[in-house]
């Protein structure tokens, strides 16, 4: 298993209740897995625990077989992460930022040259990559975040609400890239509240609501039923549409 989460529980304040509780996720290479939920359901908290950005109180997380608490460096080497806020060092140029991360992941000169040039073409960044990030639009920052997350060719790519703000053409290119990337034996794990994207892009999805994992959906199996996914999602999250 590339990602193995057992009984994950996280509370932000000792006095308050758990924000997420007893989350169990198992994903392997070759898959695209979505974490689905309403706003505030606990998707981002789960992702932030998975990427070591937030500490967690209960359970275990293993990435590429390495426990995130016991072997944090090895576990972190296994994934690339794109956050929902596209937080970057704004004074660096896009190239400098990607190159900085390549240094951190110890990517060789030849590999980084080949990957940067490939992504430059794929995301149609052109020479704008040499401009300071502070001058970038939202979409540009997103593309640089993708490049930075993929520079070390990780087995696991974790994305938090990755497609917001991308133009349709880039979105379709990004999606097809990630599809082919997963077919090479890698795992794409991402959070979203966009049912349509998850349904058509993922092999499987975990539905989270109010910090609890409600359901695991296998879309290959699900398509065989005549159930509308939108209605199904609302029914299990107990928020049936008024219409």
């Amino acid at each position: 298993m590339l990602v193995e989460v057992n009984g994950l529980g996280k509370k932000y304040d000792k006095k308050t209740d758990f924000t997420i509780k007893d989350i169990n996720i198992k994903c392997d290479g070759g898959e695209i897995v979505g974490i689905l939920g309403h706003n505030g359901a606990g998707k981002s908290t789960t992702i932030k625990c998975l990427t070591a950005m937030h500490p967690y109180e209960e359970g275990t997380i293993k990435i590429c077989g390495h426990d995130l608490k016991a072997e944090p460096i090895e576990a972190k080497k296994g994934f690339g992460y794109v956050s929902d806020e596209f937080v970057l060092f704004e004074k660096m140029t896009g190239y400098e930022f990607v190159n900085f991360l390549a240094d951190v992941y110890n990517v060789t000169k030849e590999e980084r040259k080949q990957r940067i040039e490939h992504f430059q073409t794929l995301f149609m960044l052109g020479d704008a990559i040499y401009n300071p990030i502070s001058t970038y639009s939202h979409g540009m920052k997103q593309k640089i975040s993708f490049m930075a997350a993929l520079i070390h060719n990780p087995k696991v790519v974790i994305l938090d609400e990755p497609f917001i703000g991308l133009d349709p053409f880039t979105m379709s290119q990004v999606k097809s890239f990630f599809k082919s990337y997963s077919q090479q034996g890698n795992l794409i794990l991402f959070s979203s509240h966009d049912l349509n994207t998850v349904q058509h892009f993922c092999n499987r999805a975990y539905i989270i609501d109010q910090g609890v994992l409600l359901q695991e959906v296998n879309f290959e199996e699900f398509k065989k039923t005549d159930v509308d996914f939108y209605e199904y999602f609302l029914s299990i999250t107990k928020r049936v549409s008024k219409s």
Binding site: Y95, D103, K109, I116, D127, A128, Y130
Partner: peptide, 19 residues
């Protein structure tokens, strides 16, 4: 923003130096 004409070379640096 005006794009720079000269493009930097690809280099690999030790992570401490890079930080």
């Amino acid at each position: 923003h005006k794009t720079k004409k000269s493009k930097p070379k690809y280099t690999q640096t030790n992570s401490i130096l890079s930080l």
